[in-house]
Nucleic acid binder design. Sequence first.
DNA 1: ATAGTTTCGCTACCACAAGTATCGATACCG
DNA 2: CGGTATCGATACTTGTGGTAGCGAAACTAT
Lengths: 172, 172
Amino acid sequence: MVFAATLSTVHELGYARATVDRIAAAAGIAKTTIYRRWPSKGALIVDCLLDAFGPVPLEGADRAELMSSAVRWIAAKVGEPGVGDAFAGVFSDAVSDPALREVLSAQFQDPYRLALQDALGEPENRVLFFIDVVVGTLLHRMGMTGEPMADADVAALVEMVLLHFADGAAST
Amino acid sequence: MVFAATLSTVHELGYARATVDRIAAAAGIAKTTIYRRWPSKGALIVDCLLDAFGPVPLEGADRAELMSSAVRWIAAKVGEPGVGDAFAGVFSDAVSDPALREVLSAQFQDPYRLALQDALGEPENRVLFFIDVVVGTLLHRMGMTGEPMADADVAALVEMVLLHFADGAAST
DNA sequence: ATAGTTTCGCTACCACAAGTATCGATACCG
DNA sequence: CGGTATCGATACTTGTGGTAGCGAAACTAT
């Protein structure tokens, strides 16, 4: 499968050295075949991440459990080999590439945003802020250290957002 | 000045299209001159950011005012034309480039980390977490939308970290 | 002022990666 | 068995980071 080859190549070589040529070689197909199926390297990675993440498991009796499990779930996913690198990589490319930013925002972020809005009963801007905080923190740690965030810090992150998004919170 | 030319070029064209050639042209010098002074594009940007940010203005009577002013300061800096793009850009490059990551961590993050440790009396891992949350959130918003974070959301960010880092907080 | 040294600008170049074009082979379908 | 659509391999274009070498300009010291 192309997705598996993509993740393992990114994991081995990092995002920048994981060229489309190498990914294709790892998947046993030709580079042209990849470009027949995806319009760009970024689109391939976004699809790959969608496959790797799957739907959010929105479990939990109350809001606190819901948010806690969502944060831990995404932290665990980002920590999987290759996933965090690929995520940080597309995100990086998207900064200077409005087209890729659109793909990332519409195809990747929006589904999770809508699911969270529905499950938490929060308005769009609050959920977007929630995503900024959680994903931004995880990616910043990953980008600065090259390693996923340790469990203790993930716990702190969970505690922080629970406190801020507690039912009676003011803000925004 | 090279720094001004760098920021304005990044602001106009985005990080990826702001090639070293174009930056040099905007500064009225040759590309080779840039590479005589900086070993890589990333190092140039880091120096440029150091110049643009300057030292943290750690003012405030108590911890809350200190942290609040620090968060608002960095949010304002990231919102300046070109600065946010340049910041997100180097950060992006650093993900796949351990050497640049080292430069970014040692020359850019560490001075602010040490100043914050000193001013807040917090251990290293807590200050690193603080930086991950604040900078990560701001950059994620910038990367996803292309625009700096609005004041209302910056206010929410301030409120969130103040709540989490209040004196009696547990965690980590 | 003049000779020597350093620095800078310019042109050309290399390595490498994204994305495209072409062609031949292969597999699939009627 | 014939036709069609897909895939693989190769070669190519374009753009960017980074380097080499040369000549001119500026600065220093006597």
